[in-house]
Simulated scan of single mutants.
Amino acid sequence: MSQNPDPTNPVREGAARAPLSFEAEMLALLPQLRRYSRSLTRSGEESEDLLQDCVEKALVNRAQWHGSNLKAWACRIMTNLHFNARRTLRRRPAVSIEEAETLPAPSTEDPLEKGRLQQAVQALPPDARAVLMLVVVEGYAYREVAEILGIPEGTVMSRLSRARQALREKMREENIIPLRRTQ
């Protein structure tokens, strides 16, 4: 077995053993990190700032990454940056989430459902919204989300359950019954 001569440059399996640089892997993660930053901040400008801060911190601290899961490591950096900023700044008025591209298209033909869903997600507490976005949108397992957010796996499950229940209740509250046309 040959060893990778450069331990800071991981070798991706199945890719003909071609080494990928840290920068190339971070570049490949940008779309996912951008979605996650938008879900955390609910603002286009703030999400871009958070994304930039996250990438900068990851690049500066790349020696701390030990070649495990770069996506989880970067999401944890982003989560910590976001919650640290929220603690240090005064609470700002909520910004619309309309520009966020993280929500799936509504499954029904109701044109107002997407807007109601966006408002319901926006109304969630930040910790519940972070768990919901990581599990539902990004597809992380509970264990991975617990590692990213630095919380127990049971807390991930309970926050996700409460977030889903809050969304169901909010969507049920604002249910608009379509009227039939008489012919």
Rank of each mutant, 00 (worst) to 15 (best):
S2V: 03
Q3K: 03
Q3S: 03
P5D: 05
D6W: 06
P7R: 07
P7S: 02
T8M: 11
N9D: 05
R12W: 05
G14H: 02
G14P: 04
A15H: 06
L20G: 00
L20V: 07
S21F: 11
F22S: 07
F22C: 11
M26R: 12
L27V: 11
L30Y: 10
L30K: 15
R34V: 04
R34Q: 13
R34W: 12
R35G: 05
S37W: 01
R38F: 07
R38P: 03
R42H: 09
G44Y: 14
E45Q: 11
E45K: 11
D49R: 14
C54L: 07
V55F: 11
V55M: 14
E56S: 14
K57E: 11
A58C: 13
A58G: 00
A63D: 13
A63H: 14
Q64T: 15
Q64W: 09
W65Q: 04
H66L: 10
H66N: 10
L70F: 04
L70K: 12
L70Q: 09
A72L: 10
R76I: 10
L81F: 03
F83A: 02
L89D: 09
L89K: 06
R90K: 03
R91T: 12
R91C: 08
R92I: 11
P93K: 00
V95R: 12
I97R: 08
E99D: 09
A100D: 14
T102A: 12
T102S: 14
T102M: 08
L103P: 00
L103M: 04
P104S: 12
P104E: 07
A105T: 09
A105I: 09
P106W: 06
P106I: 05
T108S: 15
E109I: 13
P111L: 06
L112E: 15
E113Q: 10
E113Y: 05
E113R: 06
E113H: 06
K114M: 15
V121L: 10
Q122Y: 02
A123N: 15
A123I: 12
L124T: 02
P125F: 05
P126C: 00
D127K: 13
A128C: 14
A128I: 04
A130P: 04
V131P: 04
V131T: 13
L132S: 06
L134T: 11
L134F: 11
V136D: 10
G139M: 10
Y140G: 00
Y142K: 07
V145W: 01
V145H: 00
E147T: 06
E147R: 13
L149Q: 07
L149S: 04
I151L: 09
I151Y: 03
P152Y: 00
P152K: 01
P152T: 06
T155S: 10
M157L: 08
S158T: 14
L160T: 01
L160V: 03
R164H: 06
R164N: 03
A166P: 00
L167I: 09
R168K: 13
E169M: 09
K170T: 12
R172F: 08
E173T: 14
I176W: 07
I177F: 08
I177S: 08
L179V: 07
R180Q: 02
Q183C: 00
